[in-house]
Design a protein around this nucleic acid. Sequence first.
DNA 1: AGCGTCCCGGATAACGATTTCCAAGGGGAG
DNA 2: CTCCCCTTGGAAATCGTTATCCGGGACGCT
Lengths: 324, 324
Amino acid sequence: MAEAAGVSPATVSRVLHGTRPVHPDLRARTLAAAQRLNYRANRVAQALRTRSTGTVGMVVPNVANPFFPVVIQAVEKELRRHGAQLLLCDSGDDVGEEAELVRSLLDHRIDGILFSPCDQLSSRPALRLAAARVPLVQIDRRAVSDVAYVGVDQEGAMREVIEYLIAQGCQRFAYVSSTSRASTAAERLRAYRHTVRGVDARSAQRVYQGSFSLDWGRVAAKQIVDEGDLPDAIVCANDSVALGVLDVLRSQGLRVPDDVLLTGFDDTELASIAWPPLTSVHQPLEMIGRKGAELVLGADGVVAGRSVNLFKAELKIRESSRRR
Amino acid sequence: MAEAAGVSPATVSRVLHGTRPVHPDLRARTLAAAQRLNYRANRVAQALRTRSTGTVGMVVPNVANPFFPVVIQAVEKELRRHGAQLLLCDSGDDVGEEAELVRSLLDHRIDGILFSPCDQLSSRPALRLAAARVPLVQIDRRAVSDVAYVGVDQEGAMREVIEYLIAQGCQRFAYVSSTSRASTAAERLRAYRHTVRGVDARSAQRVYQGSFSLDWGRVAAKQIVDEGDLPDAIVCANDSVALGVLDVLRSQGLRVPDDVLLTGFDDTELASIAWPPLTSVHQPLEMIGRKGAELVLGADGVVAGRSVNLFKAELKIRESSRRR
DNA sequence: AGCGTCCCGGATAACGATTTCCAAGGGGAG
DNA sequence: CTCCCCTTGGAAATCGTTATCCGGGACGCT
């Protein structure tokens, strides 16, 4: 490129980045040559020299969980606005894989990491390792409190769900969740227990833990029905689980909301499509993604150090929880 | 690292890659030093020297379309098995953005591209540009025929849907789709027209094109109902659209499948959750993703040049299309 | 013993950019 | 008119690897 323009490589760099003034003639010559050759700088070489790759890594527990694609989309969009690319990794909810992924991302010299740790305890070492080397933002889930975080106030949201159900006249509850060790699951459960305890001590213990899947919802629902002691409301930690529950209730001749109220969480497309439509908790996914990207790029002005960004979730009340 | 081990950088490289035999003593020394320093090679420098970044780009039209996350997940998994990372880009169904993304990926010197072109015509220039520089595999959607492709036989699948409906006794059809210029949409429409023509010429013209969304399904359904000429079956190019249609039919007092049969496409989680469960076309998403990744890495043994991998879709028959 | 052949280390040159440093030239001030 | 500073171009170092090349020693063969 330099020789094609008949100037030194230094000049090329200066023209293309405007780092320093360059004589109009030389400037024109290099621009012409760049145009003619369709020249585009090699970002690998750039990265080696400038120690910045223009790449951000993102580690999520499960891309197929409908929660994440929307966040990923927002992240990618925001990154691109700043000229950065997204290296996406799926940890498959496995702490070992997750740690391996983080190391690999560091090897690639990403400029930052968006991390959704799958385990609020065991994910810590990997998180610390990464945070010591690059800007890191926890997104949706978290494992440590002194590193930046973006997500919604899970406890507040779950409390709102229960308080709403209580206002609907419910007194006895059951909670269907997963054994996931993600911070979000833990926080929702804690809020459930704490809020429900006020009206019925036994309900606080009535917790069914399996996985975040339709099938587990079905299994748990069967268990609840078999116990012959139907609560006033079944609270689910996730939409998929809620729809599994709904499926079994229906096939057992039980009607929602007539016989029992039902709520989900995450407000995926499933919730509004279901019949009856499912009451759920809507999180501002685009905002979470965008803010996460901003923070990790330091475009936020704030030192990403220990910034905590809690967004408010919105309770979407639908048929499945309307007493009639 | 080299000085820490007291050997030359060349030796370090040889030990770590096993490129050439190295004296046990030196070998042990470097390995010890590597361990001690927690040394990991800088992949940026490696990439500059070897002209291979260990990164593959992927361009999809819309990450939030539930079809893609599963494919992405499979791709990422397979790439990782080969030690590669995934650079994910969302074109937002915009040809201009798409072209920009491709250029950016090339700048980053990715080792290959998985491309799902959003427009079967206008995406060509970008596709050509990329294919001339790196191994490229078209995935799900395609724009040119002389570059590798992985996906399912859309025409065969849609033909199967129609033939099944005809076998159920349907004679008059309506087709709800989008104006998308993706190859998949075009192929499904072509198969619909072609197959339906055999039983009813008018049905071949009864096509409603909007977007791949719930809302468009609702609008189209209203239109169909208002025309006062309900077909025997409404065929949809997509599950979301079908569920939008279902929603309006239900609220207009029309019952599925009693008054009209209904089918979707893609067999997303929505299809099995809906009420009544929606007949849909299931595509082997994991296989598509895996095969795409294999091909682009050349791990397949085949020259990725013009390999075409068509998988067979599976018709999932559910309540929404069962005549009774 | 002499000579050719391996074998294996290290020195050295890339890879393709940015950045630092130096020098030449021009202009302003004393 | 001289001196100095400021501007601007290019030469060269650098980023951290891998690949090429060269040389010294060991070994085998005649």
